[in-house]
Design a protein around this nucleic acid. Structure first.
Lengths: 330, 330
DNA sequence: ATGAAAGCGCTAACAC
DNA sequence: GTGTTAGCGCTTTCAT
């Protein structure tokens, strides 16, 4: 631990200029006589002066920090988002104030309020009981969300869940599947639109969809739901899972139950988390562009902060990722 | 977006008291006549006053924020750390300023310096070219690191890598393996100690160890290294990987190469990431207590901030997790 | 128990 | 170009 950090005033005194001058120099707000410039440069690194960003923040009202709230940092879909956001933030000299809202006894709303005070804007991925959304609209700080929102006053970015689901269903139908099931998580905001996508596609082929639920949108949740789906008379020959985590859990349990995958049942996930590639059979899924979503969200945020009132929804296109967990029926 | 947030002064005026009084009330620094107390309480929530934490920070010099720097947010070992740290931080009304150092063109040192200015302390998990360590020692803010450090002036927490490695080796020897290999990542700070652990154990049984390297400590790295290990005359009958990610990649590629696991080769990883359970065969590994590490690191940090100069190394005990990727030779 | 006043370190508007 | 002067919103002695 070293001596007390020097302030702008220390520099001013040492260099025989005024604090204001030092400030302007440090921020490149103005040009200087090379005389002063040199003196300043020299003093600054002799003293090892570094601006105090906190003090700067109270003076300017800007923190150059973006708050990022996500549910579960263990879900690679979310870490993808954070990764993308982090990258863009760094490029623009912003930092990320992070909170995993799933981890707290406090309610989400409270957490967001706390976060909000320390940042210039909020990027939020949450279950969002809609009152949080109302709160965001009221907030003086800009927010960006994920998924298509009921109203467009809060900008958001999402991959088109309906289309993603439709694509998967189409793929499965093309593979001649007869009985398709969806293993969803009712607590998730995009559950319904995914069901619609699948349903619409199946309906256009004269097929129906059976829907099952997990209790948790995790691998463990998928494991626990498996037997309910597999150990019945007319079991499905394909199951579409709400996300990859669920799919992976489901596959493990199905195999433990003695089923052969994809021979006995085709399984597909959604998100395209990196691990999908490493399970057996490799998981067919649809890429929901997690990392890109984080990037775009941060770009939108920077836009808001720049005053562009560009609001609105940015739609990313999902992409089918065909691997080995699906196969043609006959 | 709503009206301007009210300040401590607005409250003071409305309630006919001085700003100082409001401050003391808000911070519970003092007791008040119930008269004033009620007036204050009423005005505060009528105005919806919330303290400005940034201004408070410049006045107090404390931010109630801890910086967390990790390399790769996609590695579940690291997200485990963040998760643990986040939980403890939240419990103590601290926030996490997060940066993924692997994501930036800027060097780590610079990133840390930036972070450092906005937080009360730093929790750092990094490749750390040791100059970063020197920097931390010099820094006026407390830091805590992961792993046993060359000197003890910076507190740190780690799972005993030597012991973890020893345990694994012992397990493999007990399973009658003849030719054991280590697939390491030389860039990692704990590579050497893990090698030592394995080596010492093997040596005590009169066995030797062959060491291979990956280029990246990721699943992809493991995949790429696989053929170098497997496609040789006297291939090993067991490989210990530097981490689970590598192990998972290795297994996938080995299977793609036509090998049967664990019949042809036993594979073991380190970390115990949640996914290890879901690959096939389920990965035998050793739990390095990621989440607990994050928690303990944060506790140590809080201790430092409380002035307890408790420094030193906290050692977590690794635990063998036996699954299906290893089997007895004969 | 309450108020007055002096900062915290920095920025920004204005003067010279 | 450079200096002066107010703040930013809050905390914290020190009086009263």
């Amino acid at each position: 631990m070293k001596k007390y950090p020097s302030t702008i005033r220390d520099v001013a005194v040492e260099a025989n200029v005024s604090p204001g001058t030092v400030s302007k120099f440090v921020n490149g707000t103005q040009r200087f006589s090379s005389e002063v410039e040199n003196r300043l440069r020299e003093t600054i690194d002799r003293l090892g002066y570094r601006p105090n960003v906190v003090a700067r923040s109270v003076a300017t009202g800007k923190t150059r920090t973006i708050g990022v709230a996500i549910l579960d940092i263990h879900n690679p879909h979310f870490t993808g988002i954070v990764k993308g956001a982090n990258r863009v933030a760094l490029q623009h000299d912003y930092s990320l104030l992070f909170v995993a809202t799933g981890e707290s006894q406090k309610n989400e709303r409270q957490l967001l309020e706390m976060l909000s005070r320390r940042v210039d804007g909020l990027i939020v991925s949450s279950r969002m009981p809609d009152d949080a959304l109302e709160w965001m609209r009221q907030s003086p700080k800009p927010s960006v969300c994920f998924g298509k929102l009921p109203d467009t006053s809060v900008p958001s970015v999402g991959a088109e869940g309906y289309r993603a689901a439709y694509l998967i269903a189409q793929h499965l139908v093309g593979l001649a599947h007869k009985r398709i099931a969806f293993l969803g998580f009712p607590g998730a905001r995009w559950n319904a639109e995914r069901i619609r996508g699948i349903h619409d596609c199946l309906a256009s082929h004269g097929k129906s969809l059976s829907v099952f639920d997990v209790e948790q949108p995790s691998a463990h949740g998928g494991e626990r739901a498996c037997s309910r789906i597999m150990l019945v008379a007319e079991r499905p020959d394909a199951v579409i899972c709400y996300n990859d985590l669920i799919a992976i859990g489901f596959m493990k349990e199905a195999q433990a139950l003695g089923f052969q995958l994809p021979k006995d049942i085709s399984v597909v996930g959604m998100d395209n988390i990196p691990f999908g590639e490493y399970v057996h059979p490799a998981l067919t899924t649809v890429d929901m562009q997690s990392e890109r979503m984080g990037e775009v969200a941060m770009f939108k945020m920077l836009d808001c902060l720049a005053g562009h009132t560009d609001k609105g929804f940015a739609m990313l296109q999902p992409e089918l990722v065909l691997r080995a967990s699906t196969m043609r029926r006959n």
